[in-house]
């Protein structure tokens, strides 16, 4: 077993097991902690795919931004009585069936790429990404900043409480 395979399988096990923890765990606080672990594992997968800027972005935005934000909201909304309630609805058997059937289809698609391996050496991609963002993708880049501003205003608008006079 090569070093690359060891890294891939250990990171995959981390990602899959903690993703299962996210959807299975009864306590939502533990679920959000598992979410942070799973997202960190995905960052490792990015690093093994030589996507260094995505690795840094994943750590900065997902693990230290979104996971922490979700954890805050979980702790704001949580109640002690939630731990005794069932956390899945009664259609979980149908959901398992849907997932198994979809897995068969996705596996057929994925197995058609079994011949493709890496041919070139890994290179840092940050400089290329910067050139692409300022060149071909300049318009989507500016649009995304507009979307972020709209999201900021929307979040303030929705969470604003009107004080009674």
């Amino acid at each position: 077993m090569t070093f690359e395979a060891i890294v891939f399988y250990s990171l995959s096990a981390l990602v899959v097991i903690s993703a299962l923890g996210v959807v299975m765990h009864r306590n939502t606080v533990h679920s959000s902690l598992f979410l942070g672990l799973s997202l960190a594992g995905v960052a490792g997968i990015f690093a093994s795919l030589s996507a260094d800027f995505l690795f840094a972005g994943q750590i900065l935005i997902y693990v230290s931004g979104i996971a922490v934000l979700i954890m805050f909201v979980v702790m704001l909304l949580g109640r002690a009585s939630d731990l005794h309630l069932r956390q899945v609805n009664n259609q979980w058997l149908a959901a398992v069936l849907i997932c198994c059937i979809s897995m068969v289809g996705l596996w057929r698609v994925a197995s058609s790429f079994s011949g493709s391996t890496v041919t070139t050496a890994a290179q840092p991609t940050t400089k290329l990404l910067g050139q692409l963002m300022m060149g071909d993708y300049a318009v989507p880049f500016e649009l995304v900043s507009l979307v972020l501003t709209a999201a900021l205003l929307g979040a303030i608008f929705f969470s604003h409480v009107e004080k009674p006079e």
């Binding site: 990602v15 996210v22 959807v23 997932c99 996705l106």
Partner: peptide
């Protein structure tokens, strides 16, 4: 695919 389907399962079955 596995992570996607775990996410689909969670989105379909979580009550929270």
């Amino acid at each position: 695919a596995i992570v996607f389907l775990i996410g689909i399962f969670g989105a379909l079955t979580r009550r929270n």
